[in-house]
């Protein structure tokens, strides 16, 4: 099974002078069990796109298939609430959604809304805290007095505690320091690889796309520009340069080497392989 979009359009303020078509006729397939990156300029429609995944926005036209549910334009779909539990959406700067008195209560808020018992919700909350790397001493602290990075982790734990099958993250590392960013991305990879969650991540950082994701979707002016696997996408860097996307450092390094007399195949996609290729060629000439 996969998540599919069929001819999906989304129009804001239809029928008023402020009408704005944020998505037009999108066709998309997101593989389950994979980590997919959604990239595109600010205002390209990425956020509108991901809000369709838990039916916060319903398509103006077209159909979305997700986790066995069909959301069709013009109909009031059933089972929206359970979909919100199955497809967890973490908004940009999620720290602004914290409101409870204690960290543990805030994290348990989500699961409780989906009818899970207090006890089980607290258990899940503790698990989620462990996952995001917050130890027990934070349980009874007020979420409002934590640092920015810690708040972000509490907010993400709040979604993880709902135990969603699909995890959608809208720029989860924006504004975090490099160390926290790496830890965050490692967490998402772990959730994907070890817990089998489908992860969809909106990002501007090509290094993250390159290093962590399996597939990539490029959104441009409300349309899908490209959809491919990450290795395919970065193989020939002229493709992404053509879309005004700066390829990751490793690919740029490979390009530079090739421009200066090396002959490294475009199948070389990681640092180790690159080093080996360079070593081989230097030795051959040496």
């Amino acid at each position: 099974m996969s998540i599919t979009f069929e001819n999906v359009s989304y129009i804001y303020s239809e029928g008023t002078p402020f009408r704005y078509e944020a998505l037009s006729e999108i066709n998309l397939e997101i593989e389950e069990g994979k980590m997919t990156a959604v990239i595109g300029e600010t205002g390209s429609g990425k956020s509108t796109l991901v809000q369709h995944l838990n039916a916060l926005l319903l398509p103006t036209k077209g159909t979305v298939h997700i986790l066995g549910r069909t959301i069709e334009a013009g109909t009031q779909p059933k089972g929206l609430k359970s979909l919100r539990g199955d497809a967890g959406l973490v908004f940009q700067f999620p720290e602004y959604q914290l409101f409870e008195e204690t960290v543990i209560k805030d994290i348990a808020f989500g699961p409780k809304n989906f009818g899970i018992s207090e006890e089980e919700a607290l258990k899940r909350a503790r698990n989620a805290m462990k996952l995001v790397g917050l130890d027990e001493q934070y349980e009874e602290r007020s979420p409002l007095e934590l640092s920015g990075g810690q708040k972000r982790r509490v907010a993400i734990a709040g979604i993880l505690a709902m135990d969603p099958k699909v995890l959608v993250l809208d720029e989860p590392t924006a504004g975090l320091d490099p160390m926290s960013t790496v830890r965050m991305m490692e967490l998402f990879r772990k959730l994907n690889k070890e817990h089998g969650k489908t992860v969809l991540i909106v990002t501007h950082d090509m290094e993250q796309v390159f290093r962590y994701c399996d597939n990539v979707i490029v959104v441009e002016h409300g349309r899908i520009r490209t959809q491919s696997s990450v290795s395919e996408f970065f193989r020939d860097s002229s493709v992404c340069r053509g879309m005004n996307i700066l390829p990751p450092a490793m690919i740029r390094m490979r390009d530079l080497l090739n421009e200066n007399g090396f002959d490294i195949a475009d199948t070389v996609m990681d640092t180790e392989a690159l080093v080996n290729a360079v070593e081989r060629q230097v030795k051959r000439h040496g």
């Binding site: 916060l56 609430k81 919100r84 973490v90 959604q97 808020f109 809304n113 709902m162």
Partner: peptide, 9 residues
């Protein structure tokens, strides 16, 4: 929207 995503109705 953020709270609706957490199951708030």
């Amino acid at each position: 929207k953020a709270q609706e995503s957490r199951g708030v109705d």
